Amino acid sequence: MKKVMAGIAGMAVAFTFNLAHAADIVDTAKSAGSFNTLVTAVQAAGLVDTLKGPGPFTVFAPTDEAFAKIPKAKLDALLKDKAALTKVLTYHVVPGKVMAADVKPGDVKTVEGSSFKVAAKDGNVMVDKAKVIKTDVAADNGVIHAIDSVIMPK
C-alpha cells in the first residue's frame, strides 16, 4: 500500500511539474495540431531556437489550411529557399505579446522589418488579406493568433 501511495504521490508531483511548465510558441503550435506546416517551415528556416527564446512574440500563424492554398510546387520551392522562407515567416511575427483586445487597426511593424496592415472588416480582424480565425492562444513566451492565409511581405 505504501508503494502505491508513493507512486500516486510521485505521479501527482510529476503532473504538477508538467502543468507548471508552460509551452513556448513552437511547442504550443505543435500541440494545437493545426499548425503542422508552419512548424515544418519554422524548422526548415532554422527559426526554432528563436521562437523558443524569451520573446515575447506575437505570431499571426497560418493554419495548415492556409498553407494548403499555396500551390504545392510553390510551397515546396519556398520550403527549400531558406532566405525567402525566413522573410515570409518573420513577416508573420510582431515583437511583444499583443493580445486580441490590444490589437489596433493600422500598420504594424513585423520582425521581418516591413509592416502589414491590421483592419476590421465586416466584424472580422484582417491582417493584410488574411482573416484572424482564432485569437489568444497563449504561450509562455508570447501569443499565437491563427489566420486563414499566408501573408507575403511586399
Rank of each mutant, 00 (worst) to 15 (best):
Asp148Glu: 13
Ala101His: 09
Ile144Asp: 02
Thr50Cys: 06
Thr40Asn: 03
Val93Ser: 10
Pro95Met: 09
Thr16Asn: 15
Ala68Gly: 15
Val13Phe: 14
Met11Cys: 12
Lys72Gly: 10
Thr40Tyr: 00
Thr135Leu: 03
Asp49Gln: 09
Val132Ile: 11
Ala77Ser: 15
Pro105Asn: 05
Ala84Lys: 12
Pro56Ile: 07
Val93Gln: 11
Ala119Asp: 15
Asp64Cys: 07
His21Glu: 15
Pro54Ala: 10
Asp64Glu: 10
Ser34Leu: 02
Val118Met: 00
Ala120Met: 06
Thr28Met: 06
Val150Asn: 02
Ile144Gly: 02
His145Glu: 01
Val125Ser: 14
Lys2Leu: 13
Ser114Glu: 13
His92Val: 07
Asn18Ile: 07
Thr28Trp: 06
Leu75Arg: 06
Asp136Glu: 03
Asp81His: 10
Ala146Trp: 00
Val42Ile: 05
Gly33His: 04
Ser31Lys: 12
Ala14Glu: 12
Gly106Asn: 01
Ser114Met: 09
Met152Asp: 05
Asp136Ile: 01
Ile147Asp: 03
Thr110Met: 10
Tyr91Ile: 08
Lys154Thr: 06
Asp49Arg: 03
Ile144Glu: 02
Pro153Val: 04
Phe60Arg: 00
Val93Glu: 11
Ile70His: 12
Val127Asn: 00
Ala44Leu: 01
Pro105Ser: 05
Lys3Val: 13
Val108Ser: 03
Leu19Arg: 15
Lys134Val: 01
Lys72Leu: 11
Gly33Asn: 04
Lys82Arg: 11
Val143Met: 07
Asp27Ser: 10
Gly55Met: 09
Thr16Cys: 13
Gly123Leu: 05
Lys129Tyr: 05
Thr58Arg: 13
Pro95Arg: 11
Val39Leu: 04
His145Asn: 02
Val125Tyr: 11
Lys134Ile: 01
Lys72Tyr: 05
Val93Ala: 13
Val137Gly: 05
Ala9Trp: 07
Asp107Cys: 00
Ala66Pro: 09
